[in-house]
Design a protein around this nucleic acid. Structure first.
Lengths: 204, 204, 204, 204
DNA sequence: AATGAATGAGGGTTCATTCAT
DNA sequence: TATGAATGAACCCTCATTCAT
């Protein structure tokens, strides 16, 4: 009677896993996925490269788990916001705020996502990134569109362009954001929203 | 007997060089610098990997030349704008417009710059990136600051945050921009400026 | 315009390829496929491990090509014999003789085949081994069966058992056969045939 | 304090040992010694790889014990036959029959022996394989030779060739033999003997 | 007896780079 | 100018083995 494959932790002792994934995410974010060698991760974790393979199947599977975990939590937050049934402007504000909170919580994962997702989606293994992107686009687009319909967002702008503008505007922040800095996520969100909604020009 | 090593560079056939650099930039932009093998570039150029070394010293030198060429042209444009002595708002508008023109002309280089510069600046060879970034920051910051002083930009926003906001807002566009699309660079610039300056919310 | 993959020799300069495959086959046969490191092959060939990958895709592809080449030649010989339309006994004699000739020509490949084929057939890449085995079985079985029907082979033996007996009897010889030894393939074939056909016991 | 290292081996629970060795032999036989990982054995035994090291010193020591056990039993049987003082033909028949019985009892070990012994004998640890082979060769050769001298075996055949023929003929059977099949070892032995002694051709 | 986690040596493979032709 | 072949360093990953618990 074979086999019982991979006694690998998985369920039990997920602490070490999470810890290692955190380390890996940090290095991936800082050096880029391709430029990150498994040995560097192991160094940061205080172990030998081969030892990582007790916990994970491959470097790629670490990346996958990092991104999956992040997206799962992101969608938990987004879904709560989207299901709240608030008006377009409140929804947009809540989405932006939620986004900055996720950046705060998953800075490394967000940075990785920003940098690598374009290449990754081509691989079947990372098809879930495309799914997420589609849901993402739908959520933001429909929020913007109902805002335009309701007269709270400008009608003279290309909606797709506006969508990209808002989306990028928020997420690129992950590339410079450092948690524990002088601005809380909520504070940053407030300033960003102010700029996005009202512009930087003085009203005349 | 005098050994003429590496005739390279120089005046001879600068066209082929430019052509090859264009190809390389395209592949770098699409696949990422690290993930791009010299062989892929050579494939796209219809030659063998080793043959590229007749034209260039190394993969890295190709990258350097791509980025240098782009930044040189960028600063040509920026300097013209900055030396024009226009008011802060006009300057900002001109900078944004100029930026979208550069994105249009150097899409690949811009994409590479966006993705790789953070890692590259650490290397001495790419110190010029840091220089450029400093000049860049100074140009934008001072434009914003004189705008605030002149009362044309809002005073209630964190200037550094605003700077990052505007900067990112413009440059990330390179990640989705496709030359020859439905919007001209000037048209995109106009819409972006409208959003950045006046916001997306309807004025009440 | 991309791409033209793998300028790898293939057609042109097949000499080096053949040479390397010969070396590899020798080492595979002597040490076993799994126990043979790519470095060992490279050592025997007077080059570095990585250099082999200019000529071949992988260690496995070397194995595949070795076996394919052997089987192709084997079937050339077998088909000639089988298409000759001779009687069962002559056919069997010719098959055995041809087999020893192949052992003489492809000693290493035969030894590899003997040792590894059982594990290999499970892989899709080596499905052609199963094909060959089926054809092989059919050729021998039908020869034996028509021999029995014609009254030239004994009818009191289990045909499958006899098939295995003859088959193994011939091919295991590859494990001890050394080309250039005191017996020519034809001489060995004659003695084997004498034993297989008439037995080792003195007739009473 | 006395450190009791490795209680192992010894008298304690020899059943588990035998059981584990049986499992290991099965896997070795099926996948090949090199291709068999300690983890696979442990999987089949329902334990973790490391746990095997409570019972055995190393993977190699498992292999050694499997082969030693097999050869010990084989020689018990062979010695009984050889000491019986029967004539050459009866001796040969008894040896063949005994061989098929051993194949029946130690199928896995025989298969391993067939496949790996050639590589193993080079190692000092497995020198006992060479001893066994020498005794083996002597036993068979002298049986054949006295048979030839006594006029019961053909004198016109190369004796070494005949030895190899008979030896291989019997032992390769282990590669396809499945215990519990339709033929008992004795039945197979009878048919093999019939072929080896009298050939497969119809006497004319 | 067995587990969980780690070690460390190596193995197959990739790739930027070199160089004689 | 470009090719064909090779280099050598590094990379991801595997696996027998160890050991504290």
């Amino acid at each position: 009677m074979p086999t019982k494959k991979k006694p690998q932790v998985s369920v039990a002792a997920p602490d070490r896993r999470r810890e290692l994934l955190g380390t890996a995410a940090e290095v991936f974010a800082e050096q880029g996925y391709n430029a990150t060698t498994v040995r560097k991760i192991a160094d940061h974790a205080g172990m030998l490269a081969g030892s990582l393979y007790y916990h994970f199947d491959s470097k790629e599977s670490m990346l996958e788990e990092i991104l999956r975990t992040f997206l799962d939590e992101l969608w938990d937050g987004y879904d709560t916001v989207l299901d709240a049934g608030t008006g377009p402007r409140e929804t947009l504000e809540a989405l932006v705020t939620e986004s900055f909170r996720e950046i705060d919580r998953h800075r490394a994962a967000v940075a990785i996502y920003q940098k690598e997702s374009k290449q990754l989606v081509a691989q079947e293994r990372f098809a879930f990134l495309a799914d997420s992107q589609r849901r993402f686009e739908k959520a933001w687009l429909s929020t913007l569109e109902s805002g335009v319909a309701a007269g709270v967002f400008r009608a003279d702008l290309d909606v797709r362009l506006t969508y990209r503008f808002v989306r990028d505007t928020v997420w690129v922040a992950a590339s410079w954001y450092r948690p524990g800095g002088q601005h809380s996520p909520e504070e940053i969100a407030r300033q960003y929203l102010s700029m996005v909604l009202d512009g930087i020009a003085v009203r005349t």
